[in-house]
Design a protein around this nucleic acid. Sequence first.
DNA 1: TTGTAGGCGTTATCAT
DNA 2: ATGATAACGCCTACAA
Lengths: 352, 352
Amino acid sequence: MVSIKDVARAAGVSDKTVSRVVNNEPNVTPDTAERVRAAIEQLNYVPNLSARMIRTNRSRTFGILTDYISTSPYSGEIVRGIYQWARANGRTIFLANTDGQPEQEQAAWRTFQEHRIDGVLYVTMYHRLLDISAADLPIPTVLVNCRSLSSDTIPSVVPNDYAGSRKLVEYVLDKGHRRIAYIRLNPVLHGGEERHRAFRDAVAAAVVPIELIDEMVGMIGPVGREENFTFDGATALFGRAERPSAIICGNDEIALKVYLAALTAGLRIPQDVSVVGFDDFQTISLGLIPSLTTVALPYFDLGFRGADRLERLVSGKSLTTVDLRIDCPLVLRESCAVTEATKRSVAAGRGA
Amino acid sequence: MVSIKDVARAAGVSDKTVSRVVNNEPNVTPDTAERVRAAIEQLNYVPNLSARMIRTNRSRTFGILTDYISTSPYSGEIVRGIYQWARANGRTIFLANTDGQPEQEQAAWRTFQEHRIDGVLYVTMYHRLLDISAADLPIPTVLVNCRSLSSDTIPSVVPNDYAGSRKLVEYVLDKGHRRIAYIRLNPVLHGGEERHRAFRDAVAAAVVPIELIDEMVGMIGPVGREENFTFDGATALFGRAERPSAIICGNDEIALKVYLAALTAGLRIPQDVSVVGFDDFQTISLGLIPSLTTVALPYFDLGFRGADRLERLVSGKSLTTVDLRIDCPLVLRESCAVTEATKRSVAAGRGA
DNA sequence: TTGTAGGCGTTATCAT
DNA sequence: ATGATAACGCCTACAA
């Protein structure tokens, strides 16, 4: 492999001069620089970052440590966000995956240390609370899509499930819905609990009278292998005399079950019943007909902002907040309609 | 950062002896080794792989070069497969993503060269034919989920869509279905075309008489932003006097649309119509009720086997075939039933 | 069995 | 503006 010395010889200069050109350092005649560049081109010289690193003691690399890749279908977007930041900022990415196994996590940290990685993005595939303390971390770390339960402060970036859910519920109320069912996510999921809490708060804060509120748990069990009662639950809901006019689902997978139950019961969406989801898993949210009104998880931003925070952390800059919450945008599509009652009152208002 | 010399000093030996212990080389007294290990432990010494690499000229790293992360929701499994192989074989993984942009791809190759990566796994998120020739590749490369169109031979690992589809169609025929509709994937997708060809071949090879075959394209347009006519197409199909008893879908997303159309038309799956998919996108295939009989894309194996081939390639071992096709297993679930006619004939046979 | 000298490709320091 | 020399952390080659 061609080294800086080969280039120096070819250009008739010292290796340090080549180094200067490669690193855009000052004090090189344009003429010399040109000769060096020609030699680099001709010999196809590519700098060896390992050698550079031994000298400078800086690797310009970040590591990504993931738990369960692709449990959640779109969480790969987090990685895309990290990489895009890294590319724009001249950093290279190492990847390690633990499959949720502690030994593998240990091995990954070790490998990262061996490569003298500057910082680590600890990425979980669903919004989680972690039992990690800063002392466990041999390398500066930012948590992405998860937060630390312990008292010490590991910086994190998480989606703002609460605010997103609140916006969604207010939107549904705004469409005139007063008979509402909420189908909860697995109670084990932190994001699901925040969404549910936002629902309750929004309903409690509503100025309009809510006629019916139904709450049920749609799924339960270990993440990824949960039992799902949504279909039967929704079917029962639809069989009632006073059925809800809108169903708010803990996530899009639950919304899919509700669609199936509604169609099976002969109901049309959104004319007979409105349905909204959460997550914006596009295979579902865009795959359904009508397309699903939902809230998007900001996966890409989680990664991008996480990398940005990590940079600040390793370069000793201050972080304004330890836990950064990223907005979850409301994605309005076709599955939530204005109620008949609202249409009539609007018509009456126009007539008056 | 603590180096081999610090350990040597602490243990009262030379740095070379420490090196021997770290690399499990022979000719060290158990006693000395023990002293060295104690010093390593005490100082928390971690070898510097960059330094090792300049000497040995081997990085023990692979790079993953992806095009569109998470366009396909489960293709992250490919990365998981690669990582699992890498971990088991003491290799570290670099990651780069191109977002499909040639400049970014160029930059990624460059970075990989700077890190003296041993080999690259070029991963595409759906089964594609690529216009790459071996001369374009500065580093030994294996293509994963894609193949090279050019005449020269870049090793690849791809799913065997054809064989998987053939198995699926034969399974459907075996259930007694004789009136069958096939809803094709976007013709741009290579995998879709192979699946369709397998359907035609299976039908042509069938010993039983096929009463009705309907073929339509379910989606068309640029990948990721295609127009989808499946719902209307399937609805039209269901309105016919002689409607198909089974619908074979180009993938699971199309199957979702068919479910929605069937339920809207008041048909039950699988009693009134059987539906099968392809891909096994679990958000859909397990999310649907009844769960979807489909064919699984072997994403994990694609990655795992791809890494294995790359190892053989960089270590100069021979590869038996240039293009390795991985089996797509049939996943039998609940959406495809035996036809009434078949049940009757079985009953008659039993009675006779 | 153990240690010494030297070099891998690069950059830092200091001289010219 | 340019170069000589040393050093980073490790391993190879060889000597003791």
